[in-house]
Design a binder for these strands. Structure first.
Lengths: 204, 204
DNA sequence: AAAATGTAACCTACCGGTACGGATCAGAAT
DNA sequence: ATTCTGATCCGTACCGGTAGGTTACATTTT
């Protein structure tokens, strides 16, 4: 049988894993490269050979954050195939569950966008691209559920998401984030096509 | 008539004004004390005599942010006295207007909380206290409008607010933040007491 | 042999913070 | 009016530490 691959991960992987942990917990701006390599059991040349710069290491960290987030997202959607309303709620349920983790500090991508207003920062580019994609995927879902104004509903859901991300690190425990799922449900209901007196002529 | 006081503001004021501008635009972590005093036409000893440390200067900046924000908040409420529903919507209108400013970068207090996870950072303390107070004031409003679940509604509104703050710096121009006011309206309507099949026994 | 990693320096720039000495100005004494 | 004086305000010059980044070379791993 094939030997399990080398027990010790490569230096680049150790660095990325360690950096990801520190960046998420403390904010990437607060963590120095020296601390990263020290905790990773590696050295600075290894970091710079593999990633080029701290900013690119931050971008790499954010890419992994995005991959993990999409994995959870798709998992939630897969739990309720064919029912976009239930899919969205499953996603909010998944978020609520993850937010109970003690070390939860919101979305690493949103946090990075706050830390780096410079529109050219490689980390910010990753974050913005991800948020853009999330917005689009939410639109797909609200269109699939035949909402009256799918774009407005998708954006509203996104506000709830991002609001939950931020408040989960402002209040610990019983913060406003706990209201996200219920609010999402209410908004979806409000956008459902039924007998209604309101205008539902154009998508908003 | 009394002479207008000295034309040139004191060094401490110049420092605070300059720091506030830079902190908001670039993030307080990204701005060094040297740059602040240089742009303020002052010197470092003046900064440290007046504020003690950079962290306390950040706290002072956030205090002014909070003062300004409450000023706008109270102004919005004063525009529709006695009508809590209209007051909340006026507040969301005021937010929407401010978000159209080109240099808008969300809420300085929320941003600072993201930048400083350390629960003892003086800036974070200001931010958290402010957000706590905002949550309570929203609750007062939702109670005053006799919502079915005033706490849940207030928290939902807060999520929309914070979501708008964050997304306004992620997307420029036509971001999801534009959906905040409409979503707030929909949620308020959903929480209004009318003939309804849902349970409204206990406040949530 | 080639690829990956570590060692041990070193660099410039800037970080937050401070010791100390010079202005400035009000009021009291002359 | 002038001089003295005490307090307030402010700037010059400097500190040690650390930030991100780089070098040349030795060593290990495959």
């Amino acid at each position: 049988m094939p030997q399990p691959p080398t027990v010790t991960p490569k230096a680049a992987d150790r660095i990325l894993n360690t950096a990801s942990d520190l960046f998420y917990r403390e904010g990437s701006r607060a963590v120095g490269v020296d601390e990263i390599v020290a905790r990773a059991g590696a050295t600075k040349p290894s970091l710079y050979r593999a990633f080029g710069s701290k900013d690119q290491l931050i971008a790499a960290y954010l890419e992994t954050q995005a991959v993990q987030l999409w994995s959870h997202f798709n998992e939630a959607l897969a739990s309720r195939p064919g029912d976009p309303r239930a899919q969205v709620l499953a996603w909010f349920d998944a978020l609520a569950e993850r937010m109970e983790a003690p070390a939860y500090r919101g979305c690493g991508l949103s946090n990075a966008a706050v830390e780096y207003p410079d529109p050219e920062h490689p980390g910010r580019l990753v974050a913005v691209a991800h948020k853009d994609r999330m917005r689009k995927r939410l639109r797909e879902l609200t269109r699939a559920m035949d909402a009256r104004k799918p774009r407005k509903l998708a954006d509203s859901l996104m506000l709830l998401m991002e609001g939950a991300f931020v408040t989960s690190q402002l209040f610990d425990g019983a913060g406003p984030a706990g209201a996200a799922r219920g609010a999402a449900e209410a908004l979806i209901t409000a956008h459902a096509r039924r007998a209604t007196g309101e205008n539902d002529n154009q998508e908003g």
